[in-house]
Amino acid sequence: MNYSIKPNTLKNKIILITGSGDGIGRQAALTFAEQGATIILLGRTVAKLEAVYDQIVENGWPQPAIVPLDLQGATEKNYIDMASTIEAQFGVLDGLLLNAGVLGTLRPFGQIPEQEWQQVMQINVHSQFLLVKALLPVLAKADHASVLFTSSGLGKKGRSYWGAYSVSKFATEGMMQVLADEYANSTIRFNSINPGPTHTKLRTRAYPAEDSKTLCTPADIMPAYLYLMADDSIGTNGEYIEAQE
């Protein structure tokens, strides 16, 4: 997506990013912070979140916040308490990037272990349901709020051996569309983004023999993410966006 980045396009916005310790989430945190946003870094590994925190502070960008949370084990109360803390500390939430996700193992559908299926659905789908549900009242306090789900081409057309992951992305698309329709006349917009082939650990797990030099880096695809978080995309709702178009 071609998007002209204006300086401080996210100034004074409060944005929460899941899976912000690594890969696309980490790059989004740095990119959004550089554009003036205050980032709430959510992830499982505190050391990774602290490294992103330190890099943001060292660059003189708005001081971020850290929320250590394991999406696999978090309960609904954990998300409700987190939403209350965000509201108390910041007053509003202007943006939410649902970036965290797991791949599972590529294998025939009939060989997917129940535990693996449940883990993929818990992190890729159920945790998003609980997180968005808890944060809706805080998002509603913003003048204009953007919720961005991470999709995949595999959420549009299923493919052999990608069972749990592919199904989770179909569910992600459905969740985004339901919310976009329900909130069509509100100040909250919901969209999904397909990063496309990008050099990340998840991609390497799926395609270990692939030459990473042929792939986009997380930084390469940030223009689409910036557009969807910025006020420029007000009016864009219920859309599936290809970051590498």
Rank of each mutant, 00 (worst) to 15 (best):
173 E>F: 01
193 I>R: 01
158 G>M: 08
192 S>H: 05
198 T>E: 04
164 A>P: 07
186 S>V: 00
141 K>C: 06
194 N>L: 05
203 R>I: 05
138 V>T: 15
158 G>R: 01
155 G>A: 09
187 T>K: 12
135 L>D: 12
138 V>S: 12
153 G>D: 09
188 I>M: 14
143 D>F: 01
174 G>R: 11
149 F>N: 04
183 Y>W: 14
139 L>M: 12
152 S>P: 09
163 G>M: 08
146 S>I: 00
196 G>V: 04
166 S>K: 00
202 L>P: 02
182 E>G: 08
202 L>F: 03
202 L>Y: 01
156 K>L: 14
131 L>A: 12
131 L>Q: 12
157 K>I: 12
169 K>L: 09
174 G>T: 08
201 K>E: 15
202 L>M: 15
158 G>W: 10
152 S>H: 10
153 G>H: 01
190 F>G: 05
184 A>Q: 13
201 K>D: 15
170 F>A: 01
136 L>D: 07
208 P>Q: 07
159 R>V: 06
200 T>H: 06
181 D>S: 13
192 S>L: 06
130 L>P: 00
176 M>E: 10
175 M>V: 01
166 S>P: 03
144 H>G: 01
180 A>E: 10
132 V>H: 10
128 Q>M: 12
168 S>N: 05
126 H>Q: 12
176 M>N: 06
154 L>G: 07
147 V>Y: 05
